[in-house]
Simulated assay, not measured.
Amino acid sequence: MNRKARVLLVVALVAVVAMAFRVSWNALRDVAEAIGADATAALLYPFVVDGLMALALVATLVLSGDDRRFALRVLAAYTLASLVLNYVHGLVPALHAAAAGRVRLAQWDAGNWVLVLLASSLPVGSIYFGSDLVAKVLHHRPAPADDLVCEQSGPESARTPYTPTHPAPAATSAVADTTAHLSMPGPSALLTSRTDAVQASDPHAPHTTRTPDIESGSEALRQAQFEEAELERMRQDARRAYAESAQAGRPLSARALGEAFSMSESWGRKQILAARDDDEAPRPVLRAVDTAAV
């Protein structure tokens, strides 16, 4: 929907709400006068009831979780109360007089007491619930956009970490090849060891001092290559985990994926993007070949 259509839709909604408020305003004003409110209080009474309904509706659109359910309960309660008072206004003809004053809302005493209690408690409830809703809206912090895209609507989807059950074969073979390559001595190492043996057998040959710098350098290189292979295996496992959760209809969020592999949320987000890129990569198309024509 384009911007112009959205603006027209909002304007139409505001117009309908304004007309509905005007219809309800007449009934609520007469009910306020029937329970003893003066002219000014009766004029402001509809704004107290229907105004809180509008505030609760806005809070429902902004809040989430338990706060949103609280705003929905307030909206439902005041909507029901306004409906009851409008219904009573239609049943009691005496409320329609120009200067009715104090009028019984029901012939039954208990019913009249309940209706008077309902009508007189709505302004107090508006003060309490309205202040609470405004405080919740002002202290609300919306969730990041990435988490909203990755998280599923179910509460368990982002809390269940994925534990890989089998290592990636490509990463395992890479680690094995790297270890085997590092364990095999090269030609220079063989020549160096042979030269050291010849010099050790010759008593007149000068003694060479073996510094630990060469050994520590090769050990550091071996350790770095091994750690890189382990990180690559972890990345492959994370991408496979996200792909399997997406195929199951419950994709993992970036936070849940990072926690499952003891990494950060940004690391999990990178693996999710990489997994999506792998899924969108073009695959080779197989075509049938007519052997008879060949």
Rank of each mutant, 00 (worst) to 15 (best):
P185N: 06
P203G: 10
H166F: 11
L231Y: 10
A256F: 02
A248W: 09
R222I: 12
G186Q: 05
I214G: 04
V198M: 07
A224Q: 03
G249I: 09
A189K: 13
P206W: 15
L221S: 09
H207W: 07
Q225H: 10
D196V: 04
G258C: 09
A256I: 08
E215L: 02
T178Q: 03
L190N: 04
S216L: 11
P251L: 11
Q223W: 00
Q225E: 14
A246Q: 07
I214Q: 06
A220V: 05
A256D: 11
L252W: 06
T172V: 04
A176M: 06
S218I: 00
R194P: 12
Q225T: 15
S216C: 10
A197T: 03
Q247P: 13
L182F: 14
A220M: 09
R233Y: 05
T211Q: 13
Q223H: 01
P212Q: 07
A168Y: 05
T192G: 02
R240A: 04
H166I: 12
E230F: 06
A180V: 03
R222Y: 13
R233C: 04
V198F: 12
P206M: 10
H204Q: 01
A246N: 06
A238K: 06
A171W: 01
R239I: 06
A174G: 00
H207S: 10
S173T: 03
E232G: 11
A241I: 08
F261M: 09
L231D: 09
T172M: 01
T172F: 01
S201I: 05
R250L: 13
L190S: 00
P187G: 15
E232F: 13
T179R: 14
L257P: 03
A256C: 15
R235Y: 13
P206T: 00
T165L: 04
T179I: 11
E232T: 15
A197P: 07
A243V: 14
A205K: 02
S201Q: 00
D177K: 03
R233D: 04
E232W: 13
F226I: 08
T208V: 12
E228P: 07
S218P: 11
A238C: 14
P167H: 01
A238D: 15
A220Y: 02
R239N: 07
E232Y: 08
Q247I: 15
G186L: 14
A170S: 01
A260T: 14
I214M: 00
E259Q: 01
R240Q: 03
I214H: 01
A197V: 05
G186R: 10
S188C: 10
L190W: 00
D202I: 15
D213R: 02
A260K: 06
Q223L: 08
S216H: 08
D213I: 09
A248E: 02
A171K: 02
R222A: 13
L231A: 12
A205S: 01
F261S: 14
R240K: 04
S188L: 12
R235Q: 10
R240E: 04
S183H: 06
D202M: 12
R250N: 05
H204C: 01
A200F: 12
A229G: 15
H204N: 01
A176Q: 07
E230V: 00
Q236R: 09
S201L: 12
E215I: 05
A256E: 15
S245K: 04
L182W: 14
T172A: 07
P169E: 08
A170I: 02
S218C: 10
L257Y: 11
M184C: 08
